[in-house]
């Protein structure tokens, strides 16, 4: 019994400790936004890694998401005789919810876990310490370019996801199932408001920041040993997914 309580206490403590460390990490990263140097070359390299190399998976998932939305939307709307609203249904689902959320989840699975592994290996092979001994802040050198690149890349990838998704819905709804092309687009233009678009952009910015912070944090505090790295990458994917969905709820309730 005492052991159980002790165990519980220890776990609570380490949880609180981790939450505190994460906040400090966040604060330091936010502070560094205002301190040069910004290392444009590293940022471009990270944009290539996070953005360009995620684009094929974003195209693929965006297309299928849009196609599924077209299919589901068509059969649901037909029950009420309002297939004409298909365009707005697809676009609103994508712009408000699915685009930002699915893009963030894909990027975190593809790039986030790789970033954790990369920084984690730098930690256990003492490359971060080597920077430190040269009086170079490893946060600034390693972490900031990734966070900045994530903030730029995730909204752009989200936009691509949305556009491809809308065309995927078009393919299924208009080309295959015969909804009129005019009503598909005019419904969309009428129903999607700037609040929806802005909300989507804010979401994708928040998600981009969240997944990069989690990925960098987990790598930065990787425990010694190769097994530390594998644990950290798994934790990155799980924690980013949970945080993205949690944020999504909070932000959605804010924008509704």
């Amino acid at each position: 019994m005492i052991n159980l309580i002790r165990q519980l206490g220890r776990q609570t403590l380490s949880l609180v400790q981790e939450a505190g460390r994460m906040q400090l990490f966040l604060l330091e990263a936010l502070g560094l936004f205002f301190i040069p140097p910004y290392r444009p070359r590293s940022i471009i390299k990270q944009l290539q890694f996070i953005g360009v190399r995620s684009s094929s998976i974003i195209l693929l998932t965006g297309a299928f998401t849009g196609m599924v939305l077209g299919l589901q939307g068509f059969y649901t709307l037909r029950k009420y005789g309002s297939e004409g609203a298909l365009g707005s249904a697809v676009a609103l689902s994508l712009v408000r919810e699915l685009g930002p959320v699915l893009t963030a989840l894909m990027v975190s699975g593809r790039a986030g876990s790789a970033i954790t592994a990369e920084i984690g290996i730098m930690r256990i092979t003492e490359q971060l310490d080597a920077l430190d001994t040269m009086a170079i802040n490893p946060m600034q050198y390693v972490v900031m370019p990734k966070i900045i690149a994530g903030l730029l890349a995730v909204p752009l990838l989200t936009a691509i996801f949305n556009v491809i998704g809308i065309w995927g819905g078009y393919l299924v709804g208009v080309v295959l199932l015969g909804v009129s092309s005019g009503s598909y687009f005019s419904g969309m233009v009428q129903s999607v408001e700037s609040l929806d678009v802005n909300g989507g952009i804010v979401k994708s910015l928040v998600f981009g920041l969240t997944i990069m912070l989690v990925a960098c944090y987990k790598g930065y505090y990787t425990a010694r040993g190769a097994e530390g790295v594998s644990r950290a990458t798994t934790q990155t994917v799980v924690l980013s997914a949970v945080l993205v969905l949690g944020w999504d709820y909070i932000l959605t309730s804010f924008f509704m």
């Binding site: 290996i121 003492e126 490359q127 310490d129 080597a130 430190d132 001994t133 040269m134 009086a135 170079i136």
Partner: peptide
């Protein structure tokens, strides 16, 4: 820290940089 250099037991070379870039790194930075 600027007054020191440190040779790590396992080298701690930057694995994303070439040998040349590793050695040039302190001067470039």
């Amino acid at each position: 820290k600027q007054r020191f250099a440190y040779l790590f037991q396992n080298g701690a070379l930057f694995d994303s940089l070439t040998v040349f870039e590793n050695v040039a790194f302190p001067l470039r930075e």
